[in-house]
Structure formats: C-alpha cells, structure tokens
Design a protein around this nucleic acid. Structure first.
Lengths: 141, 141
DNA sequence: TATTGTTATACTCTATAACTATA
DNA sequence: TATAGTTATAGAGTATAACAATA
C-alpha cells in the first residue's frame, strides 16, 4: 500500500471503466431486447450502416468469420438484410440492410442515445472533455 | 446535418464510448483466455474478491440467477471457489474463492492492468481527468 | 406464502476444423 | 494454392418457467 498521491495507478481507472462498461452493456441489452434483437444482432446492424462483406463484419464484431454466418442468417430470416452477390468476385457476399433493417437500426440508435443515465449526469463541458479523452484513446490503433 | 457547434450531440460521445468498449472487451477476452477462463468466469472471480451469495453475484454480473449456477459449477470444477453453507439461512450458498482462485484472480488483474493501450496513450493529468468524469457517471445509481 | 438456489429447456454466441466454390 | 464463406461440432452464456428446500 505504498501509493504516492501524485502517481495515479491504473487500477482505479480500469475499475471505473469496467463499472461504466457494465452499465452501458446492460443499457445496450435492454435497448436491443425491446426491438426483438440480441445485442450482437443490434451491433451487426449498426456496423452495416455501410454495406460490408462477411469477413469485414467479422472483423468489426471482433469474432471468427464462422460466427457471422449464423448472425447474418438470423437477421436475413427477419428480413433485415440481404446477402447480395458481387460480380467481380463470386465468393464474396455483400451484406446490405433492407429498408426494414435500416429503420430498425435507426430506432435502436435512438433508444441507445435516449436516457443514457451515464452521460446525462455530465455537464456539456464535461461531455466535450470526455469526448476529447475518448478520442485520444481510440486514435491511431 | 444541422449540427450546432456549441451543443454537443450525444451521438459522437456514445459512438466513441462504444468503440473504446469494443477494444477493452477484446483486451479482457484475451487476458482471460490466457488463463483458461471465459470472460464471464474472470468477471465472476473479480466480483468474488469478497465472498458473496449466488444472488448477489447474479446482480453484479447483470444476469439471471439461474445462469450463475452454471458459471459457479465450472469455477468450482476448476477448484477456484467453494460453495459454503451458511448456518443462519440454510438456503444460501456463500461463494468463497480458494487460494488457487485468489491467485488466478490476482494474475488476471495484473494482465488486465498491463499494457492497456487505451489508457497508456493518456497523460497522467488526462488520466486523472478521465477518472473524475467516470466517477461522476457511476456515482449514485 | 415468500425466498434461495437448482433444473429443464431453448436460443444465441463462440472458436476450431473440415469443407465448397471460387480465384 | 490461397481465399470467402459455410457447415459440423462442442462449449459457454442467456432468459423463462417449474421445482425443492428452507424461511
């Protein structure tokens, strides 16, 4: 317990971030559930605002390509997207949201943004500050 | 696209937070995987630094109590915790980490804290600032 | 009666490996 | 040969409902 006041240990920071992540995760789960989607399905729709291939979607979801088959199957069965063929390379499937899919994506987006108790507690200045810090964290790669 | 400069929309902020969450999630998954744990098992061990009942653990994991039975089963099978009986109320199971469980928990904690590329990009001052903002977000409930 | 934890069930997500159809 | 996507498989997380033991 030799904690110097001037040198912040990462412990507290990571703990806090995990706590905020937990609440945000619960919020996201509730939002997708209201629309009859699993969290991962909602995430997929979000990433498909621009059409992408199966492999690209896998990268964005941080999961193996084999999982995407099932996720896309279920979204396609709900009529939320279509697997289009690509003339230049017939191996590739181009995933395109249907109108219903785009509509549901917008609804989900709205719900996620509405009443996020985490962020509503911050002043406008603090939100700008947090935005700046998060940008720094994500920048580059 | 009528975005006023002075009024920050929550959109960008939420997007950024989700991006940071995604990377942190990948980091956590990698850390637990190295120790032969699922992310949820690692999370459970983390929450059991203090002994808790099944129901308490369920609350902390934001999931139904019925799931905790399986999660605890698997941790118990690995010898990482024990279900102790509570004399005052024989319905309750008191979950206590074994020495091996506590050791693994410390290892996981170390790995999570080490080389978090997200936080290493921030200056000490910025980390303190982020810590303050995250505290505000979590405060109260 | 109410509560704690379990079981049964069914679905989703997950990675690995083997497969297909293209390139 | 290499790549994009699929299938098969097995394990883990998830919620709901019904249940046993205890309060």
């Amino acid at each position: 317990m030799t904690t110097t006041e001037g040198e912040p240990t990462p412990t507290q920071l990571v703990e806090l971030f995990l706590a905020v992540m937990g609440r945000m995760g619960a919020h996201l789960a509730a939002c997708s559930d209201e629309l009859g989607l699993s969290p991962q399905q909602a995430r997929a729709i979000h990433e498909l605002e621009q059409p992408r291939s199966m492999g690209e979607l896998a990268e964005r979801l941080f999961c193996d390509a084999s999982n995407v088959t099932g996720i896309v199957d279920r979204l396609e069965a709900k009529g939320l997207l279509e697997r289009c063929s690509v003339p230049e390379d017939r191996r590739v499937k181009r995933l395109v949201l249907t109108d219903a899919g785009r509509r549901l994506g917008r609804q989900h987006h709205q719900r996620v943004l509405t009443d996020v108790p985490l962020f509503t507690r911050l002043s406008n200045d603090d939100r700008r500050l947090l935005e700046k810090l998060l940008s720094q964290m994500v920048d580059e790669g």
